[in-house]
Design a protein around this nucleic acid. Sequence first.
DNA 1: TCTTGCATTCTTGTATAACAATATTTCTCG
DNA 2: CGAGAAATATTGTTATACAAGAATGCAAGA
Lengths: 228, 228
Amino acid sequence: MDSQNSFPLGPSSLTEALYESVRKRIVNGEIAPGEKLTEVRIASEYSVARPTAKACLERLTALGLLRRTTHKTAVVPKLDEDEIRDLYFSRETVERAAVAALARTATVPPAAVRAQASMKAAAGDMAFANQVEADIAFHSALVAAVGSRRLSRMHEVILGEVHLTMGQFQAHRTTHPTNVVHEHDDILKAISDGDPERAQQCLAHHLDQAQERLVGQLRREQSEGTPA
Amino acid sequence: MDSQNSFPLGPSSLTEALYESVRKRIVNGEIAPGEKLTEVRIASEYSVARPTAKACLERLTALGLLRRTTHKTAVVPKLDEDEIRDLYFSRETVERAAVAALARTATVPPAAVRAQASMKAAAGDMAFANQVEADIAFHSALVAAVGSRRLSRMHEVILGEVHLTMGQFQAHRTTHPTNVVHEHDDILKAISDGDPERAQQCLAHHLDQAQERLVGQLRREQSEGTPA
DNA sequence: TCTTGCATTCTTGTATAACAATATTTCTCG
DNA sequence: CGAGAAATATTGTTATACAAGAATGCAAGA
């Protein structure tokens, strides 16, 4: 059924292309949190019809990348502390299952080690956005390697919100990826050792760290007052 | 449709009502698997415009309740054995996290015991569809009680497909709900005992049973040849 | 001055029509 | 009987129009 797209093959339909573009702009923080996205604005910016823009916004809303209620205009959400915790609780749930499954068969996903390599190689000189990309790619590879369509689908949604939150901070601070790289290595090690328990522990520790980094940044930002 | 503005606050918008109605028909098996759902058919059946019907179908597709590729008409899917296993793997992932979280604080969701009660009370005389409803309500209550918006959202999607699959079998066989009720009780017991490990084990056992029932029914059906 | 109420305006919800592009079916011809 | 081409069906996209809900601002009254 899956058309086995042996290569990138950019979005076939217009709607798809529009969706991808807007999505990218949102998760990369190009559209600030709180900013309003009206249907006509999208429609005119991209020269598409309003129904097309509408479909796009609805899709993004379903994924949690936009918030909107009936008859009100969509806004880019800014996750508060509680929501970040909820997000990471869900994330841990999904990724725990993934690494446990991988460790049980001691399968180390090649795509994950590739993502690690690219993160290590260009650690300092990469733009923060690319570091985020590599991080996301690593975790994505982990879950994808399990081979469960539904687990991957859930994870994709979660990572979307993670990406969004990270993207919103990316202008402010550049965290040293050293810790992250080490934590990733620990996870891979546990998987290749075939130790599901340890793999889950390493993962949980890694995600806790990441979550606290995010929450810390949020608090710092709030105590400084809104810069915009 | 009726104004009925007393409490439940039925679907406010037309789109919402349409979506709910079609969804119900699909998960209850009123629309047979493999049946084609064209936009114009929905539009004419409900006397709505085609864009409205289109939005409805797209939403159902996103939830896995319909399958469709570009320029091809949507069909109600029939999950094969592999997909049922994938579905239950994902389901177990989510529900394990839920019961573990509940057991950690020994919180027994009132809604879950209510669902259990209604299942026990009218075990034999309820229509199979209602048994399915009660079963779904039980598991739904379990996850909802955790209080995680995102976990609930993921679970909702999964339960949709579960409901769909159960609904498709519901004409053929009426399984004795006795086992199910006992297994549910075991889970609740482990939660109220504050034993996360046992709660997860009971849940895993319960889901394995359910999964095998489904797979067994699927095989039986296939070896008999398609009745329709 | 503060608050209430109304009206204007902005935005979204829904419908209709039309054309383009693609899939599927059917029919004809070799 | 098989292969290719026309015809049909279905979806993708756009344009337009009107209705309904929400927000804003202004004016009037307490």
